[in-house]
């Protein structure tokens, strides 16, 4: 019996080890396969959404194209949601996550991050006639938030216990809950609120207070110094020669902030 169990353990270890070996050096793997697999959002305009022919488009997609172009490899876009993007990376199904992902200690413990590539800050938004000035004013209010997002994790800590947090599977759920009046306020990103405003809805979200300034980073697996270095070099070059600024102008309608 003991014998059989140790065999099982050995098999599991071997499998895990083979998995690690398979992605021993992600950069050379990408170069030898000739394809960069990138996890991108498809339900999060303007970072990632779809065109009329269902092809992905947005800030994240353009950054992915830029990086693949610089590496001289083909680009394979893998649509993900905020709930499954890290599993995709950890299981080696993608090489990079460019999915408007903010950095936090929990994520930092399991994956690595490149330098920031896009500005992003989270706040609580509500129509003009609702008085909210800080987290304490959320008591007794119903706030919508996207499950597993940075603003969800942050707000869960700072919101008073009397506040009701309604968590939705994706940003669309959060947006619809706000537009249909099921929640009084939403915690979301500046760009999401801007995208809502652009559609001229009857409920106009206004920024009430800042939850967190959390620029977006590219996620990659841990212990990949070569890939990390290549990414940072590409991003640094794109920041100086204005290509990243052009992407920001196109999708966010504003220049890349200084010091990003």
């Amino acid at each position: 019996m003991i014998h059989r169990r140790s065999l099982l353990v050995a098999a599991t270890l071997a499998l895990g080890f083979a998995g690690n070996l398979a992605r021993a050096d992600a950069l050379s793997n990408i170069q030898s396969s000739g394809t960069l697999r990138v996890a991108v959002p498809q339900d999060f305009p303007p970072f990632g959404s779809v065109g009329t022919d269902m092809t992905p488009q947005g800030y994240d997609i353009d950054v992915a194209k830029l990086i693949a172009g610089e590496m001289g490899v083909d680009l394979e876009l893998v649509p993900v949601t905020s709930a499954n993007r890290i599993p995709y990376l950890q299981t080696g199904k993608v090489d990079l996550v460019i999915s408007s992902m903010g950095k936090n200690p929990e994520r930092d413990a399991v994956i690595d991050f490149s330098m920031a590539y896009a500005p992003f800050y989270n706040g609580v938004f509500a129509p003009e006639d609702i008085a909210i000035e800080g987290p304490d004013d959320l008591a007794g209010k119903v706030v919508g938030v996207t499950r597993g997002s940075i603003e969800d994790l942050e707000l869960s800590e700072i919101a008073p216990t009397e506040a009701t947090l309604r968590r939705y599977e994706d940003n669309n759920g959060t947006i619809q809950a706000f537009l249909s009046g099921q929640v009084e306020a939403i915690a979301t990103g500046n760009v999401v609120a801007a995208a809502i405003l652009e559609r001229n809805p009857p409920q106009r979200p206004e920024m009430k207070f800042l939850v967190k300034d959390s620029p977006c980073y590219i996620g990659l697996n841990e212990n990949e110094p070569a890939l990390m270095e290549a990414l940072d070099a590409i991003l640094a070059a794109a920041k100086t020669d204005g290509r990243l600024d052009a992407i920001s102008q196109q999708w966010l309608g504003m220049p890349l902030p200084e010091g990003l």
Binding site: Q42, D43, V50, M54, D170, N171
Partner: peptide, 15 residues
């Protein structure tokens, strides 16, 4: 990662 009917609906309504 399947873009089946429901998911396509979510993606489209977002765009």
């Amino acid at each position: 990662g399947f873009l089946e009917l429901t998911k396509a609906g979510t993606v489209l309504s977002n765009a």
